[in-house]
Computed example of a mutant assay.
Amino acid sequence: MSSPPLTEPTFLILTALADTPQHGYGVIGDVLEISDGRVKLRAGTLYAVLDRLRTEGLIEVEREEVVQSRLRRYYRLTAVGAQRLAEEAARLRHNANTAGNRLRRRDLLAEGGVG
């Protein structure tokens, strides 16, 4: 049985952690960049998702450090998380390719071409 699709914020958070471990606010900035400014995560939303992803074994805490008297946690993708992200990327790619093919076929039919 396949896993349910990831939400866009979850997909983007996992993508942000695919390269290198990051702390929460680094993830927020990276998600904003990856999404070309479309997805603006709030801290509360991010940390709720990070907690869920940790529970599911998709990410883990790499290290913790204290910065200006505040605890900063760095998260990284686990092997299971990398596999889940790869599966979701393949699913999205398949769907996008199917949509593109159908749109091209539609355009050919509209131009009087052969379908």
Results as ranks from 00 to 15, higher is better:
M1E: 04
M1R: 09
M1A: 08
S2I: 04
P4Y: 00
P4D: 03
P5C: 04
P5K: 08
E8W: 06
E8V: 10
E8Q: 13
E8P: 06
E8C: 01
P9A: 00
P9L: 02
P9Q: 02
P9E: 03
T10K: 15
T10W: 08
L12Q: 10
L12T: 09
L12K: 13
L14Y: 02
T15E: 12
A16W: 15
A16I: 07
L17M: 06
A18W: 03
A18Y: 13
P21G: 02
P21V: 01
Q22C: 10
Q22K: 14
H23G: 05
Y25D: 00
V27T: 05
V27P: 03
I28N: 08
I28W: 02
I28A: 10
I28T: 09
G29S: 12
E33A: 15
E33M: 15
I34W: 07
G37W: 11
G37V: 09
G37Y: 10
R38Q: 14
R38W: 02
R38P: 04
R38N: 11
V39P: 13
V39H: 11
K40T: 08
L41W: 11
R42W: 09
R42Q: 13
A43M: 04
A43G: 04
G44L: 00
G44W: 01
T45M: 10
T45R: 14
L46S: 12
Y47C: 00
A48D: 07
V49E: 11
V49T: 12
L50V: 02
R52D: 10
R52H: 01
R52Q: 09
L53E: 05
L53D: 02
T55F: 12
T55L: 14
T55K: 13
E56H: 04
E56F: 01
G57C: 06
L58I: 00
L58C: 04
I59N: 06
E60V: 05
V61R: 05
V61S: 06
V61Y: 05
R63F: 09
E65G: 00
E65F: 00
V66K: 01
V66D: 03
V67F: 03
V67S: 03
Q68H: 07
Q68W: 02
S69M: 06
S69T: 10
S69F: 07
S69Y: 07
L71M: 14
R73M: 11
Y74F: 13
Y75D: 03
Y75K: 03
L77C: 01
L77P: 01
T78M: 14
T78G: 13
T78Y: 15
V80Y: 07
G81S: 12
Q83Y: 15
R84A: 07
L85S: 05
A86D: 07
A86C: 00
A89D: 13
A89F: 12
A89V: 02
A90R: 14
A90V: 11
A90F: 04
R91D: 06
R91T: 00
R93K: 12
N95E: 15
A96R: 14
N97I: 10
A99H: 11
G100T: 06
G100V: 07
N101S: 10
N101F: 13
N101Q: 11
R102M: 04
R102A: 12
R104F: 08
R105T: 12
R105F: 02
R106H: 05
R106W: 09
D107R: 15
L108Y: 09
L109C: 12
A110L: 14
A110W: 10
A110R: 13
A110E: 13
A110D: 11
E111V: 07
E111G: 09
E111W: 11
E111R: 14
G112P: 10
G112Y: 12
V114E: 15
V114K: 14
